[in-house]
């Protein structure tokens, strides 16, 4: 018993478990010294953690003035066909419908008639796709407008990828056909349905 720690010392150490309480108070793992998207910053002068590109620079691979896929133009002329990278099929149109309904329909309307929910709430007139001018317009025009905007419409090049914008262009063509189809071109079954008013 002579080597045992005196009770007096043990009593003095009893407060040590209280230190555990302190351990719950640090938050340096929750808020680490790093930035996540959209966080404010007190380091950069403009207060943003996400940095804008340096003026007069482009991201590697994003500047493709010669590419019909990226610009809707070839040699300065609007393209009249989808770029070779885009394959026209049912899944492209289905995808185009999803993107169109999400990004375009608020103003242009689900049917492309310019009667979207925003158009109905403001003093703006949204052009319908179902006019001779736009029915005969080159597909590159729709892509260029979707990318860079026109008149009061803002550009969506930064929000929708080029592939998705082409899917929208293809779907706009389908919408135009849907409102301007020749009944005689339909299969016989569908023709009888049209005549029956279905």
């Amino acid at each position: 018993m002579t080597n045992a720690i005196p009770n007096r010392v043990l009593t003095r150490l009893l407060w040590l478990p209280l230190l555990l309480i302190l351990s719950a108070c640090h938050i340096d793992m929750y808020d680490q010294a790093k930035y996540k998207p959209n966080q404010p910053s007190d380091f950069f002068q403009d207060g943003r953690a996400m940095r804008a590109p340096v003026p007069n620079t482009v991201a590697l691979g994003s500047f493709r003035p010669d590419s019909a896929l990226a610009t809707g133009k070839l040699n300065g002329e609007l393209v009249t066909d989808l770029p070779p990278e885009i394959t026209l099929n049912a899944s492209l149109l289905a995808h185009g419908q999803i993107v169109f309904n999400a990004y375009c329909a608020p103003c242009h309307g689900l049917a492309g008639d310019g009667q979207g929910v925003i158009a109905n709430r403001g003093p703006l007139v949204v052009p319908s796709y179902h006019t001779d001018r736009l029915r005969t317009m080159a597909v590159g025009y729709f892509f260029d407008v979707a990318t860079n905007g026109i008149n009061r419409m803002y550009g969506y090049g930064a929000r929708i990828t080029a592939e998705d914008r082409w899917a929208v262009v293809a779907y706009i063509r389908a919408l135009q056909l849907s409102q301007n189809a020749n009944v005689k071109a339909l299969p016989p079954d569908d023709q009888t349905k049209v005549k029956a008013g279905q």
Binding site: P37, N38, M153
Partner: peptide, 27 residues
Amino acid sequence: YCHNTVERAATAGFPATETCMSCHSQV
């Protein structure tokens, strides 16, 4: 329309002011 990177990025994408103004420059 506003959270436009939700299908291709870790973050859903907080809308830029430009996204708000796409409609609110008109209405």
